[in-house]
Write a protein that binds this DNA or RNA. Structure first.
Length: 308
DNA sequence: TATATTGTTACACC
DNA sequence: TGGTGTAACAATAT
């Protein structure tokens, strides 16, 4: 389940590996994950062979200039007037391999990030797109749920992309301040702090895992309503955001769900989780059992003693 | 077989 | 009407 630290991990690795490479071939095995144009694909998407062809045609022969990130969206900036926007949603993943990498792994990967998942050769049944570059290296896009997408957008149309318009500030950016963060709560006093943190209009990139961890570090229960939070609690929550996300990036992402790095290895953040996914396990600080509750349809874990 | 999972959006409701 | 709250949706492993 990639959130900002996981997406950032993928972006840094891909930027290093793909920069300068020329796309020689694109194999689109599942056309429904492909979009063309600034309009969003929507949930009820159907396969469009025409779009897949157009995607292929416009991308072939172009060089990757850079790979960047905004919120949880990846940007593959290409030569020519196009950019590929990628959202991994729940289970999207990229695996990159060159000849050396292939020898190391013998072409075997776990497409699902579970120790019990079998090693498979790529492309697997969950591989939907394969990029091949002129130096023989390959980039595989896998997605078990097929919720993610690759969208080709003309650079001139980037500002027409709806999601980009509704996104709030980057949590690690200079424009994200306590005053701005707190001000967004005024119009929705009854919302829980957990849902507030996960709202991309408030601040981007924070999902279920990191919101739980941030609230643990802040000592605030996820069920607390915005209007009831004391000034000091706002400060604690705000000050917990950057360190928790930075630790996630440093650990190369979480090891939970289906997240794997671009070389098929796991991130280490899972080792540091204090509350996420630890229902009925003792709190690492006080030993109290971690409890789980549902907020806006999402499971939220917290320590009833450490978090008031 | 029912359930759990997420970001996004369509839509109901003040 | 505009902003907020909520439910639905996509697909599949377990």
């Amino acid at each position: 389940m990639p959130e900002l630290p996981e997406v950032e991990t993928v972006v840094r690795e891909l930027d290093k590996k793909l920069r300068g490479k020329i796309i020689k071939h694109v194999d689109i095995r599942t056309p429904k994950v492909i979009g063309v144009g600034p309009a969003s694909l929507g949930t009820k998407r159907k396969a469009s062979p025409q779009k897949a062809c157009e995607f292929q045609r416009q991308v072939l022969g172009h060089r990757v200039l850079s790979v960047k990130r905004r919120a949880k969206l990846l940007f593959f900036n290409l030569t020519g007037p196009q950019t590929i926007l990628v959202h991994l949603k729940m289970t999207g993943q990229f695996i990159f391999e060159d000849k050396k990498q292939r020898q190391k792994t013998q072409g075997q990967y776990r497409v699902l990030n579970k120790l019990t998942a079998p090693l498979v050769a790529l492309p697997s049944k969950h591989t939907h797109v394969v990029f091949e570059f002129t130096d023989q290296s390959r980039l595989y896009y896998n997605d078990v749920r097929k919720f993610g997408y690759l969208r080709l957008v003309q650079d001139a149309d980037i500002l027409k992309v709806k999601e980009l318009k509704s996104y709030g500030p980057e949590p690690l950016g200079r424009t994200f301040t306590l005053a701005i963060f707190k001000s967004r709560s005024a119009s929705r006093p009854k919302q829980s702090i957990k849902q507030f943190l996960m709202d991309n209009a408030v601040v981007v990139g924070i999902g279920n895992i990191y919101s739980d961890e941030i609230l643990f570090q802040a000592g605030v229960a996820p069920v607390r309503k915005l209007a009831d939070l004391q000034a000091q609690e706002w400060v604690k929550i705000f000050q917990a955001i950057a360190p928790v996300l930075k630790q996630g990036i440093k650990a190369k992402g979480s090891s939970v769900g289906d997240f794997i790095r671009t070389d098929g290895t796991w991130g280490q953040m899972g080792k540091f989780h204090f509350v996420y996914g630890r229902k009925n396990q003792p709190c690492k600080k006080c030993g109290t059992m971690i409890i789980a509750t549902k907020l806006g349809g999402r499971t939220s874990c917290y320590c009833p003693k450490c978090q008031a």
